[in-house]
């Protein structure tokens, strides 16, 4: 693992953005997440790593209540966003998801034009009062998604016609367009080739300037490259959580060490 850039991690003086305590998730009778405590900091990239089926994606989906769309799924414990419990009855998951955006494993552009894909969020949330405002938002978002130069001449072309890497960056631009405070990314690079992956990783590093980013990944190199904090999940438990450098060079738990050296997983 020579490519791990472990040095010079300028973790800012951090305030906690999302705080999860004693989170339990059940799928029917299956206890998928057990007693997870995590503090996710603002303007930080937090990586969730762990073997398949360990619950990292499930936990990620708890953070913007995407699990609400699954009937058999039940979440217990508290998850606070800026000190407010997101599972409180008064919280509307629709408003929550506008604040906590999500990018999925497989690029999922809507079967609409590139412009309409990006404008979707601003339109439903009424972020633009006129066409000119919307144009500005779309351009800004596509620039932040690092895809503006590639699509600026064909904003009316369907988003589904782009290549896989472009589609994923379009989806990131779409998520950014609603001005979220937290961006959740569920294995955003697993369907991409190395070049597109590098572009998306670069993008994640830039997004950190403004947002708190949580990324689920199967690639430990990726976690080491892009994140400042890393959480290791195993069989529904949060085994270890700490500075990325710490986790990868000097893990406390023997299971973490086994996983990052390739003995389990």
């Amino acid at each position: 693992m020579d490519d791990l850039r472990l040095v010079e991690r300028d973790v800012d003086a951090n305030n906690v953005k999302i705080s999860a305590q004693k989170v339990q998730v059940y799928y029917g009778s299956n206890h998928a997440i057990k007693d997870v405590d995590v503090d996710i900091e603002d303007k930080t990239v937090t990586a969730f790593i762990g073997p398949s089926g360990c619950g990292k994606s499930t936990f990620l989906r708890c953070l913007n209540r995407m699990n609400d769309t699954i009937d058999v799924c039940r979440v217990e414990g508290t998850i606070n966003l800026d000190g407010e419990d997101i599972y409180d009855e008064r919280v509307d998951p629709v408003q929550l998801r506008a604040k906590v955006g999500m990018v999925f494993q497989k690029p999922n552009p809507f079967p609409k034009s590139i412009y309409d894909n990006v404008a979707y969020g601003p339109r439903i949330h009424g972020l633009a009062s006129n066409k000119a405002d919307l144009d500005v938002i779309v351009e800004k978002s596509l620039r932040r998604g690092a895809i503006w130069d590639e699509v600026k001449d064909r904003l009316d072309a369907p988003g589904t016609g782009l290549s896989g890497g472009q589609q994923q960056r379009l989806c990131i631009a779409r998520a950014v367009a609603t001005e979220p405070e937290v961006l959740l990314m569920d294995e955003p690079c697993s369907a991409l080739d190395p070049i597109a992956t590098a572009q998306v990783e670069e993008l994640i590093d830039e997004l950190r300037q403004r947002y708190s980013v949580v990324i689920v990944t199967h690639s430990m190199q990726q976690a080491a490259r892009v994140s400042q904090k890393t959480a290791f999940f195993h069989l529904g438990n949060l085994v270890e959580f700490g500075e990325t450098g710490q986790i990868f060079t000097n893990p406390e738990d023997p299971r973490t060490e086994s996983y990052i050296t390739g003995r389990i997983g």
Binding site: K99, M102, N108, F110, I124, C171
Partner: peptide, 20 residues
Amino acid sequence: ALRDGSYGLGATRAETITKV
């Protein structure tokens, strides 16, 4: 995935159905 994408952007169920 399309529905999830829409919900993930904070769309309501009605918006997701009529717009996506």
